[in-house]
Structures are given as C-alpha cells and as structure tokens.
Design a protein around this nucleic acid. Structure first.
Lengths: 195, 195
DNA sequence: CTATTAATCAAACGAACGTTCGTTTAATTA
DNA sequence: TAATTAAACGAACGTTCGTTTGATTAATAG
C-alpha cells in the first residue's frame, strides 16, 4: 500500500512545485493534496529537502536513460548515422521529452538553487553528461565537414536552451502540434532563419 | 538620504533573490544585508510582494526602453536597415543586456509565479511587447524574401530562449568574451549549424 | 484468532516568518 | 537654538513553518 502513497506524494509534489516553487510549497499543502496529515509524509521522506533531491535525481536519471535508449537502439546496425540525422533525432527527442515531462523539467531547471551544494553538484554533473551527447553530435558533424567550425560548448548550450524553452509556452490546445513544433526547431537548429 | 537606502535594498534584494529565490529570501536576511532592522524595510515597501513587483516592473520597463533606444536611434536615417542587420543587432543587444543585468533577468524569468495574478499578467504583457520587436524583424525578413517562410511565433520564442540562456552559464572569467559569444549566436540564429 | 508490523492520525514543538508599532536618534527647517 | 520631520531601532505580534512524538487504526503473519 505504501508504494501507491509514495507515488501520490511524488505526483502532488511535482504539480505543486511546478506551479508555486519548492520554497513556496508547504508540507501542509502537499499533505492535503494527497489526503494525509503533514507528519505522515515523513514515513516516505526524511525531510522536505530529501523529497526535492529524490525528484531531481529521478528526473536526471530518467532523462539520461531515455536518450540512451533512443540513440543506442540499433546496437549493431545504424550505429553511425550521419550527424544531420542524429541532430534531428536529438531535437525531436528533447522537445518531446520536455513537453511530456513538463513538471520534472521545470523543477530541474528552476529549483537547482533550492538544492544543497552536494546534491546540486551531482545534478549539474548529470546535466553535463546529457549535454555531452549533443556536443558529441556537433563535434562529429564538424569533423566530418558537414557542419562548419563552431564553438561546441556555446552551440550546445544555445541549442538546448532553445529546445527546453518550448515547455514554458507549449499548450496542448495550441495552434501547432508537437510534430510541427519539432519541425520548426529542426529547421532553426540546422539552417537558422536565412536557410 | 532615504534614496540611497532604497537603492541598497533593491540591490541587496536582487542579489538575494537571484541566488536563493524570492520565497526563500527572508526580510531578515535582506535587512541584515543592508544593515537595517527587518521592520525598517517597510519605510520603503509596503510588503515583501510589493518589493518583487517593483523589481519586475522596473526591469521590464528598462528592457523595453533600452531596445527602443537601440533601434530608434537614427530617427530619420538608417530607419530601414535590412532584416539581417536588424536581427544581428537584436541578438547583440539581447545578449549584452542580459549578461549585464543578470540578476534582473533571472528574477524576471524565474519568479513570475511568485507574483500575484494581476502583476504577473502585466509583466507577461510587457514581455510580449518586447518579443513583438523580434517577431517584427522576422516578419520583415520573410516579407522581403530574405528569410524563408517560418512560424514567427515559434521562431521568436526559440531565438529568445536561446539568447536568454546565455546569462545562466556566462562567467566573466570564462573562455570567451561577450563579443565572441554574440558572434556565435548571430551565426546560429542566421545560419544554424550547417551554415 | 492473536500477535506483529505498517500506515496514518492528532497534537504539539520550537523556530522562523512577515508585519506592526511606539520610541529614539539624526537631519532639516524656522 | 527650538520645532519639525525623516529614518531607523528594538521589541513584540499572531501566524505558519518543518518536524517530532505517541497513540490509533489497518494489514499481515503465525
């Protein structure tokens, strides 16, 4: 029975933190949302901070694992697709994942400073590992002569910021579908506005 | 004499909110930073919320005014520069402004949800006015045939997210100068990674 | 059916919160 | 110099925070 309750706490916490922020969310609000007394939350988390740490770590691991599944799926075959295809795949994956897990992403991006130093360093490291995947694709493209010379670090930051930005304005009842949004971004990343 | 104190409160608040977030910042911390007693802050702001509102409004007005100065400087002459030049100018302005006013920008982007509904709506409107400047440049480029067809709304969101992202990783003692960072972004915005 | 463990409640804890207020000090004006 | 205003103090207000604790109910096992 406890597993369901923990999941309920996680989900309610995500929603509350997404809309109000971690510091502004109180354990009384969280408990009320789940249908518990405030003290009962401590059966599942040893502190409010530990709850945020769990959410963050969960998200970062899931993000890394999800991308690895997308890229490494072929194992033997299609291991070495061309850089353009891989970059297009990264754009599609990143946007789709960030829209589907909006709350996790917003928490991971906005609540880093609410984390203790040690845990923040860990999250930053994991994020850097994720970004390294994009840098590797860009580096390969530059090496193959498909992409002109560009600063890999800045380009990776820029592209990720651009893609992550989607989940701050996307609405499921909006004008464009996710696929259409992905297409626009693939074009922008690859060719810019002048094409 | 009071004007200096108010400025000191503003500056200390910006710094504290930038690093800890608005909800996590206490008036006792803020007062200590300025060298005041907590209650004394209420000579200058009628509430903690009003302080955030003032900071946000200040920033949005300054941002809009600063861009207007950059674009409208020629008055009669160079009013109609080509879209590429105007877009390059926008990229340079946005990055430079966001690096120079890091604290204001981070607050405006991360603390929207700490604002009351009315004030948030006002800030969102002002931000939309700023974004309209970029959309207008893009629209002009498309109309002139310099830029291929593109969704103006999505493209503007994407470009602004990319540029604003700089102030989350930029360090003044970093590898690249601001001018170099601007150059990389101008190239990415205009031509993407394939060029 | 009973004993044991797990899950939750209800109540309270001390600390810290934003805010108020009467008083005191410093500066300005007359 | 005396009267007035501005600025800051210092202490307290009621409230709410995260957290702890001991009793109570629900589920499981022997």
């Amino acid at each position: 029975m406890g597993a369901d309750t923990q999941k309920a706490i996680f989900e309610a916490a995500k929603s509350l933190i997404e809309t109000k922020g971690f510091s502004a969310m109180t354990l009384r609000q969280l408990a009320a949302e789940v249908g518990l007394q405030p003290g009962s939350i401590y059966r599942y988390f040893e502190s409010k901070d530990a709850l945020l740490q769990a959410l963050m770590n969960q998200h970062m691991l899931s993000l890394l694992e999800s991308w690895n599944k997308v890229e490494g799926k072929g194992e033997d075959e299609d291991e070495d697709e061309d850089p353009v295809s891989r970059l297009r795949a990264f754009v599609a994956f990143h946007i789709r994942y960030h829209i589907e897990r909006r709350a996790d992403v917003i928490i991971a991006n906005l609540e880093l400073r609410a984390l203790g130093d040690d845990y923040r360093a860990d999250v930053v490291t994991k994020r850097s590992h994720y970004e390294a995947n994009l840098r590797a694709i860009l580096a390969e493209g530059v090496k193959a002569g498909v992409f002109p010379q560009v600063d890999l670090e800045v380009a990776a930051y820029a592209i990720i910021a651009m893609l992550t930005g989607v989940c701050f304005w996307y609405r499921s009842d909006g004008r464009l579908s996710i696929d259409e949004i992905i297409e626009v971004h693939q074009k922008l990343v690859l060719q810019g506005v002048v094409g």
